[in-house]
Design a protein around this nucleic acid. Sequence first.
DNA 1: GCCGTTTTCGGCCCGACTGTTTTCAGTCG
Length: 572
Amino acid sequence: MPMSNAQIAQVFYRIAELLQIKGENPYRIRAYEKAALVIESLTEPIEKIYREGRLTEIPGIGQSIAEKISELIETGKLSYLEELEASIPAGVVELLKVPEVGPKTAWLVYKELGIKSIEELEEAARAGKLRNLPGMGPKSEENILKGIERLKRFSERVPLGIALPFARQVVEWLKERAPIDKIEPAGSLRRWKETIGDIDILVTSTEPMQVMDAFVSLPIVREVLAKGETKTSVVTEMGIQMDVRVVEPDCFGAALQYFTGSKDHNIHLRRIAQDMGLKISEYGVFRGDEKIAGVTEEEVYNSLGLPFIPPELREDRGEIEAAAEGKLPHLIELKDLKGDLHVHTKHSDGNFTIEEMALAAKQLGYEYIGIADHTKGLGVAAGQDEQEILQQKEEIERLNEKMEGITILAGVEVNIRMDGTLDIDEEVLDQLDFVIASVHSAFKQPKEVMTERICQAMEREVVDIIGHPTGRLIGKRDAYEVDTEILLDTAVRTKTILEINAFPDRLDLPDTLCRAGKGKGLKFAINTDAHSIDQLNLIEYGVATARRGWLEKEDVVNCLPLEELLKVFRRK
DNA sequence: GCCGTTTTCGGCCCGACTGTTTTCAGTCG
């Protein structure tokens, strides 16, 4: 079994953790973390890169790590990691998971008290044994207990679809309760990352303490972790940590840039600044004592000789290099979309009529809307059979004659059965404007079977789009076991469009596969999979995922005007 | 451990907050 990029990345993350405990040179630790991150975000299998002898061409991978990758690929294990594991008692690394506990504390409690697990740490803290350790006191003991409590209750990252509306609500509340000039969520939320570790909100105000007071007294605050003039951290009722930072107005751009991250993007920028003899912080870009930028983000990037880089790209996955070469993509925007091609109605498990969905789409400024209800194989969703599908098509034709300003497309979301066949006759599918095919059953098939199953569906000429191609539900269900390389290649060869499902639970295709697919010349459709009028608005999540995948409007078929789109559907 | 049209050695992003401290270490992002 070849090792996946993710598995190899995990090995280096593990090494970094172990080295932390050992108190190793922080930069050496950083190097392993950086290598793990870069491997994780590769768009091709690292094994292939290894076979072609290109490992050290990857930025952040040098001689030493390349050798370790070779060993992992060839033998499936790594002697260096085994030695490290042997030199540190199992369980001590686990302590790092506790907020407030870092490598120093973990090592201290192990050495002094022999603590090797979170349970033992909790016991010792409750027994008051920690307060007498050097550098610690009653407060730190209490904080460790609180940290353990927090870890037990909420260690998981929160899906973007929950964090974003929540953050927007808090922004509204703060505006009502304190004198605020500018306010903007930053962090991974602003980069539209699919899950959020904590929420950062950036504020400019002449009365920082009033903002902080208003913040900590919001009813959603469960616990205040820290409160100062410029930074306040709380844990909210739903368990997610939220930080508010207040800065001077003339720092807003620099602070927004800084707090948006990612960490790796910022470190890379700072290196560039350093090379130019500049210093960059959340307060601005400085040459000596002179501040040369900071009011806007654009100014910050420009001062480094770079164009503005959209937040969705800031993961240090080559965007800084692309910016320096003037090769940033012109990312797709919400306004580029001319329609949504995957919505459900009362004809299956949707909550509104075709007409109601169409009117709502018109309100959003769309030129067309694609109805794609479930088919009979999906009993739980009241899927339609052949006859019902044709009746629905007639209803759509009648509506199109009556309605103005929007065209309804008759489509379907047909099931890909276990054996790769479709659960609706192809003669019927042929009569529709377009066909989405999706997997809704037998998720646990072995990788080869699932890959073959989806590829077989793509080979059918009637199939235009594959719906939510990996099947993942973020935080709930992993993607099906599927060979994404074969999936993407088959989609390119058969000219099948892959969906970017905008449902925040799905965001499927994921951003990294969007980017890999674009590299192969693939086309995409950004769809909401809406079951109600309200859910049509989820499209912004799909656009964000496409942007994180470096997509431009030319890559996305529902940016085409109706006539062009229909040609694409007929091309197979 | 990585990296280099200033460098193959000597750097490596930068600051806030807290707690236990008499000036700073640890943690976090």
